[in-house]
Design a protein around this nucleic acid. Structure first.
Length: 462
RNA sequence: UCCUCGGUAGCUCAGCUGGUUAGAGCAUCUGACUGUUAAUCAGAGGGUCGCUGGUUCGAGUCCAGCCCGGGGAGCCA
């Protein structure tokens, strides 16, 4: 049992006249020499509770220390509010300052701050209404992901964070080593001798749990991963992080269509879940930052996602009459401006399938036309690619052929190829960028504002 | 990484074609006000103008390099 009551429960209570204890941080304080009004927030909800303190009941010294940011324990009677703006408040009988916050140096003020400034004080920004809302929503999303998969008989598989494989081909990797960087052991030819490193070989942080996820799916049937992912790309955009979280389901006996069905159902479920369980926080974000947010979220849960092939997409772009900065050509990857056009044209999320094999990863299932593979990308408004996935090539010879064509280290993938050698089957999966989803759901404009402590080029503070 | 915009008080910004002691709003502090809702009103304090170098009688202002941040692009989730 808690010794105090969460503010979200106090605000929902109607048992007036009872003595309660609340603990939290002071958001604002108003008043005069007779009475003080303190907005107290404990993070349990976006809403603060109003504490009313009559100055005569407390020492001058104590009241002086109640400033924005300080931490209080307040005991008093829960009463109906006399004032407008709130229905309940606490008539304080005892106030204890658990932690002072010097008003001259506490950086959060009772005014709006820019996101850029708050990023510089990421240790304190969770105490703002905005970041409180964002991080509560982030929690709801994470919980809903586990619930969605658990309810559908998926098993949560933990894939490694340190990987000895660099064959995933998803960008630059962070090296993991315990060697002395200033003076590493060397081979006769001058190269670093990783045989002397901690794992006896060169290792990196994972860029994807997919390959290991496939191993799980070909045993447990339905699995998903949900863990941190690392990309050492020098990406400086509002949509990229060096450390982010990714969800990667992998399903045996599922083809590309089953894959799309699951992805669409999942996205709609997750958005609906937050609409229901994060309603207060979403309302705040909607009112404060993005008046279209709630409407946009509801529309995603209702609209059927458009499904078109890459070839159709290229046709639509070339016959659109629009001139693009980057020319549209069958065989080239779609650019941001092309994706934006397709999403706006359909006025709904768009799933694009059957990409040219040359622009996609080695593990994607090859179509009979010899030109395309069964990959799928889901494009969302503004966010762009929120999901990337495919049916996997389950045929050993075709897979080996692609590995050789792309000059990948076949030997290092022996364990992956073994799944095609022993009891292979049709299977599919996709990767969902957790922060990209959080970006869409919260309506924030920069991905650094939907993760508590963002890691980006030149920034690993906190 | 490329393009572009920016860095002046705790925060958000103004500061003209270089020219005396660098301004405002909010915040903070002091005072006023018997219930406030971003409370209100009056007053006060607060600055190495991102860093380094250069041009000049004189640089917040012009030039170069660097650092950091925003937006756009690429890479991708």
């Amino acid at each position: 049992m808690l010794s105090h009551t969460l503010i979200k429960n106090l605000l929902a209570s109607t048992t007036f006249g009872t003595e309660v204890n609340a603990r939290g941080w002071v958001r604002t304080r108003r008043g005069n020499k007779n009475i003080a009004f303190i907005a107290l927030n404990d993070g349990s909800t976006i809403h603060s509770i109003q504490v009313v303190a009559e100055m005569s009941k407390f020492s001058e010294d104590l009241m002086k220390k109640i400033t924005t940011g300080c931490c209080l324990s307040v005991t008093g009677d829960l009463v109906q509010s006399h004032g407008k703006g709130q229905t309940v408040e606490i008539q304080a009988k005892q106030v204890e300052i658990l932690g002072e916050a010097d008003a001259e140096t506490f950086p959060l003020q009772k005014k709006e701050h820019t996101m850029e400034f708050l990023r510089e004080i990421a240790h304190l920004r969770p105490r703002t209404n905005t970041f409180g809302a964002v991080f509560r929503i982030r929690h709801h999303l994470a919980f809903a992901i586990h619930k969605f998969f658990n309810d559908r008989n998926f098993y949560y598989l933990h894939t490694p964070i340190i990987t000895g494989s660099d064959a995933e081909g998803a960008g630059e990797m962070f090296h993991v080593s315990t060697l002395n960087a200033a003076n590493p052991p060397r081979n006769p030819d001058g190269s670093v001798n990783f045989a002397e490193d901690f794992f006896g070989k060169e290792t990196n942080l994972t860029v994807s749990g997919q390959l290991e996820g496939e191993l799980g799916a070909l045993a447990l049937g339905l699995i998903y991963t949900f863990g941190p992912t690392f990309r050492a790309e020098n990406s400086n955009t509002p949509r990229h992080l060096a450390e982010f979280w990714m969800i990667e389901p992998e399903m045996a006996f599922h083809d590309i269509n089953d894959n799309m069905d699951l992805a669409e159902e999942m996205l709609k479920y997750l958005v609906s879940y937050v609409l229901e369980h994060g309603a207060d926080d979403l309302q705040f974000l909607n009112d404060r930052y993005d008046k279209e947010l709630l409407a946009r979220l509801r529309s995603v849960t209702e609209k059927k996602f458009a499904r078109i092939t890459y070839t159709t997409a290229v046709d639509m772009l070339t016959t659109s009459g629009k001139t693009f900065e980057y020319p549209v050509k069958w065989g080239s990857d779609l650019q941001k401006e092309h994706e934006t056009f397709l999403v706006e044209k359909h006025n709904a999320p768009v799933i694009i399938t059957d990409y040219p094999r040359e622009i996609k990863a080695f593990y994607m299932k090859q179509n009979d036309d010899g030109k395309t593979v069964r990959g799928m990308d889901i494009l969302f408004p503004w966010i762009g690619e929120i999901i990337g996935g495919s049916q996997r090539e389950e045929n050993l010879e075709k897979l080996q052929q692609r590995i050789r064509e792309m000059k990948l280290p076949e030997k290092e993938l022996w364990w992956y190829l073994d799944t095609r050698k022993f009891g292979t089957c049709v299977h599919s999966g996709f990767g969902l960028g957790f922060e990209r989803l959080a970006l869409f759901v919260t309506g924030m404009s920069n991905i650094r504002d939907v993760i508590p402590f963002p890691r980006t080029p030149k920034n690993a503070e906190f």
